[in-house]
Design a binder for these strands. Structure first.
Ligand SMILES: [Zn+2]
Ligand SMILES: [Zn+2]
Ligand SMILES: [Zn+2]
Ligand SMILES: [Zn+2]
Lengths: 184, 184
DNA sequence: ATCCGTAATATGATATTATTACATATTCGA
DNA sequence: TCGAATATGTAATAATATCATATTACGGAT
């Protein structure tokens, strides 16, 4: 099923040092730079890892990058259709699945939705913090937790291949001005 | 489908001293005792916590307890209908939601499915180990990880309310006799 | 240039999962 | 016994996801 695909993830390069490691989404930040960084990462993968960022895929990524929020496949599909792409479910699912596979987006299972990866290159299962009020989704690095988890699983003979850690709760913005809806 | 379980002659049973800490599901064990324990826990809640384990709910729990596997809501619904209960989706969803709310079952988001809680009373977000081969679902206690996670989230001002940790991979049974399908 | 194989896309249909709405029945306490 | 809360049955529909098939775009090899 899985296509051959010989693009190694290559973790040989840490991102540029001076960049603050991608704010937790609900703190005030320059989102234009934030999404730009993610897009740059994708471009770099195009050049260096043979990524095929076709128009649909690229547009899908852009759409996801607009907000720190997860979009349902059908939301994405509607946006794609507006832009002249196909309007059948597989159009969106294909693009989304591809992005997820390449680590440029994540699937948020609790929401049945997809979010752009805002910390590209991290290569470790992130933790998603989902605010139940404003719907913003923050991505927290959690290599240590993932490692600890894999170890615990290994202890009972289970080998982990994919890991999803999702926390639903309240983001600081929403907690402070309750009902304010200031987040993303 | 599979004839109702011939409770394998367990030679691997740890003596049930106080609380046999609920085997990881894919190790050979006396599942009859395993599910019985969960059912007992439910009964105790009925007596001590005013739980209302109506016929549908009880039957739903029994169905989930049959195997260490997650069942889709519609699978459960079909079983319920066989037994003379309603055959419309809300019948299953209501019962399942109730069980989840009371901690007697879990929702496995990665599978869009539900599994009985095999370690009732734990009350800490468990880790689910989902075998991609045989579909068995094991539940590992992970209070420490949950706590660590909540701390990390709190560090950025996010307060966690619900947490789901799900790992997909391969269980020891399936890894050993590859393709053997011996698990639960 | 032409051919061929693979990947990507378009489209229609179908499958699966989940919710809403409302009517009826039951339980439980004043 | 009455009324409120809870639970169930049923129909309709929404939301999410996959399948099947045909067509097109784009390599590399003749
Ligand atoms: Zn941003
Ligand atoms: Zn928020
Ligand atoms: Zn068991
Ligand atoms: Zn297995």
């Amino acid at each position: 099923m899985t296509p051959p695909d010989t693009t190694p993830p290559d973790r040989t390069r840490r991102n540029r040092a001076d960049e603050p490691p991608s704010q937790p989404a609900f703190v005030e930040h320059d989102h234009h730079a934030c999404s730009g960084r993610a897009l740059e990462h994708a471009e770099r993968m195009v050049r260096e890892a043979g990524l095929r960022l076709t128009p649909v895929r690229r547009r899908t990524l852009e759409i996801l990058l607009e907000e720190h929020r997860a979009l349902g496949a059908y939301d994405v599909l509607a946006r794609l259709a507006e832009d002249g792409f196909g309007n059948q479910p597989p159009v969106a699912y294909r693009a989304l699945d591809y992005l997820v596979e390449k680590g440029l987006a994540h699937r948020i299972r609790r929401l049945n939705a997809f979010a752009a990866c805002m910390a590209p290159g991290h290569e470790g299962a992130p933790v998603f913090l989902i605010c139940g009020e404003c719907g913003c989704v923050a991505e927290l690095p959690a290599e240590d937790i993932a490692g600890r988890l894999a170890a615990a699983a290994g202890g009972v003979g289970f080998s982990v291949e994919r890991l999803s850690i999702e926390a639903k709760g309240t983001c600081p913005s929403c907690r402070d001005n309750a009902g304010g809806r200031t987040c993303p």
